[in-house]
């Protein structure tokens, strides 16, 4: 029975921005807003979704899209509202997961370098799924631009992810690292 409150940083404010340099190139980490996330599973879900399907290293569009997670699972980002449960007609399992994730934007010329601190994720190695481990945490990692990435973690692990990202950024640019709320 111990009070360990002081051992753990309080959750970061959603407005936090990390900036720094990775191998001499600028990089910025901030929280990203996604207003609806819907987890959909079904044996034909990869081909049946009307939304553009994003794997690695495809670049996600600004509008709604679907992330490819598994052979039989996608995550719709900012797609239409759907009812939770088993869709008998389409044979799809549907769960609202909007509050289940926390997304970070990592952008700038040094962004890929920061990702390389946490995973062997290379543009030359495509993958049908955006789900992978980064910094030892399960995440969805996809591109939103030429040098812009989205890292989506489970809500419960967002603080751990933030801490990993800020520590990695601090140690690849000891002088120019900044953290501001």
């Amino acid at each position: 029975m111990r009070d360990d409150t002081h051992k753990w940083d309080a959750p970061f404010p959603a407005s936090s921005v990390l900036t720094g340099e990775v191998d001499g190139k600028a990089c910025r980490v901030s929280s990203a807003n996604m207003h609806r996330l819907t987890l959909i599973s079904g044996s034909g879900v990869q081909t049946s979704s009307e939304l553009p399907l994003i794997g690695w290293p495809e670049i996600a569009p600004d509008g709604p899209f679907a992330l490819s997670l598994r052979r039989d699972r996608i995550l719709e980002v900012n797609g239409p509202a759907r009812t939770d449960g088993w869709d008998e007609l389409k044979s799809l399992a549907i769960s609202d997961m909007t509050d289940g994730y926390h997304a970070f934007s990592v952008d700038g010329p040094g962004a890929l370098g920061l990702l390389h601190r946490g995973a062997d994720v290379f543009a030359e190695t495509p993958s049908a799924s955006v789900a992978r481990l980064i910094f030892g945490l399960p995440a969805l990692v996809y591109r939103t631009g030429e040098t812009a990435f989205s890292l989506v973690f489970t809500r419960a692990q967002a603080v751990a992810a933030y801490s990993a990202l800020s520590t990695a950024l601090r140690h690849c640019a000891p002088v120019r690292f900044k953290e501001r709320p």
Binding site: K7, W8, D9, A10, P11, D99, R117, F135, G136, L137, R155, A156, Q157, A158, V159, A160, S163, A164, T167, A168, H171
Partner: peptide
């Protein structure tokens, strides 16, 4: 950098604050 809080990070509650 897997030291300190990054060694074995805990899951956090939405209500932690």
């Amino acid at each position: 950098h897997h030291g300190g809080q990054n060694f074995r990070p805990l899951k956090r509650l939405a209500l932690e604050n």
